[in-house]
Simulated assay, not measured.
Amino acid sequence: MSGTAAAVEARLPIRSDLDLVRVRQQVRQAAATLGFGLVEQTKLVTAASELARNTLVHGDGGEVRTARVADARGQGLRLTFTDRGPGIPDVERALGDGYTSGDGLGMGLGGARRLVHDFTIDSTPGAGTTVTVTSWAARPPRPREGQ
């Protein structure tokens, strides 16, 4: 495994508030390693923080896996949050602004979705939830001909 892959590939438990800090640190380090700019790092870390907190609070804990991905868009970072909690009975409603199943403001899932490039959620009541997000490192614009 290359040094870059080792710095990016991780599997972290989410069982306590301390784990939330570790998730944020890992995501920021991995995004920086892959060449994400500060704004994209901040968006991804914010989304990861929201999703990790949801995993802990609403999913009774779980884990996150981080992985480097690459395609025609360039390099990206994929985060997969998995829990075995009660699941989400109405995913579309949960993604809407203002919806909350707890004491929060209801910006978690919908806000996280807006902060990343790709977002999928799979939830089965009684069996848990998996949320996968991917963000892509911005590539510098190509110079125009004649420049």
Score class of each variant (00 low, 15 high):
residue 101 S to I: 08
residue 83 D to F: 02
residue 20 L to Y: 03
residue 10 A to F: 06
residue 129 T to K: 00
residue 42 T to I: 05
residue 13 P to Y: 06
residue 128 G to W: 04
residue 40 E to L: 02
residue 29 Q to N: 10
residue 22 R to W: 09
residue 126 G to Y: 07
residue 14 I to S: 03
residue 136 W to T: 11
residue 12 L to K: 00
residue 23 V to G: 04
residue 102 G to P: 01
residue 108 G to K: 02
residue 94 A to D: 07
residue 111 G to R: 04
residue 8 V to D: 02
residue 82 T to S: 14
residue 110 G to T: 10
residue 103 D to W: 09
residue 13 P to R: 15
residue 114 R to H: 12
residue 60 D to F: 11
residue 143 P to G: 06
residue 109 L to P: 03
residue 80 T to R: 12
residue 80 T to C: 03
residue 109 L to M: 02
residue 11 R to E: 15
residue 46 T to Q: 14
residue 114 R to D: 13
residue 104 G to K: 05
residue 92 E to P: 00
residue 117 H to R: 04
residue 7 A to W: 00
residue 145 E to C: 01
residue 145 E to P: 00
residue 28 R to K: 11
residue 15 R to N: 13
residue 84 R to D: 12
residue 76 G to D: 09
residue 126 G to M: 09
residue 140 P to R: 04
residue 9 E to S: 10
residue 137 A to G: 10
residue 76 G to M: 07
residue 58 H to T: 08
residue 104 G to M: 06
residue 85 G to F: 06
residue 141 P to L: 14
residue 67 A to I: 02
residue 84 R to F: 07
residue 134 T to W: 10
residue 43 K to H: 13
residue 135 S to N: 11
residue 27 V to H: 09
residue 89 P to M: 03
residue 77 L to G: 08
residue 12 L to C: 03
residue 10 A to Q: 08
residue 12 L to A: 03
residue 28 R to P: 01
residue 28 R to S: 14
residue 56 L to H: 11
residue 118 D to G: 00
residue 81 F to C: 07
residue 99 Y to C: 05
residue 13 P to D: 14
residue 116 V to F: 01
residue 101 S to R: 08
residue 104 G to E: 12
residue 90 D to Q: 09
residue 19 D to T: 04
residue 77 L to A: 09
residue 144 R to E: 13
residue 64 V to F: 12
residue 87 G to Y: 02
residue 113 R to I: 10
residue 13 P to A: 15
residue 68 R to G: 03
residue 48 A to V: 11
residue 117 H to L: 00
residue 92 E to C: 00
residue 95 L to Q: 07
residue 105 L to T: 10
residue 20 L to R: 03
residue 2 S to Q: 04
residue 98 G to P: 06
residue 77 L to T: 11
residue 88 I to M: 05
residue 38 L to S: 13
residue 81 F to W: 05
residue 43 K to C: 09
residue 65 R to G: 09
residue 9 E to D: 15
residue 16 S to T: 15
residue 70 A to K: 12
residue 25 Q to E: 15
residue 111 G to A: 05
residue 56 L to P: 12
residue 132 T to L: 05
residue 26 Q to R: 15
residue 137 A to Q: 10
residue 26 Q to L: 06
residue 34 L to E: 10
residue 55 T to L: 08
residue 134 T to K: 10
residue 59 G to C: 11
residue 104 G to P: 00
residue 123 S to P: 03
residue 93 R to P: 01
residue 73 R to Q: 12
residue 114 R to A: 14
residue 135 S to Q: 12
residue 42 T to E: 13
residue 13 P to S: 14
residue 93 R to C: 04
residue 66 T to Q: 04
residue 108 G to D: 07
residue 8 V to E: 05
residue 113 R to W: 09
residue 68 R to Q: 15
residue 85 G to D: 08
residue 124 T to P: 00
residue 99 Y to A: 08
residue 146 G to M: 06
residue 26 Q to A: 13
residue 24 R to H: 11
residue 134 T to G: 11
residue 123 S to A: 08
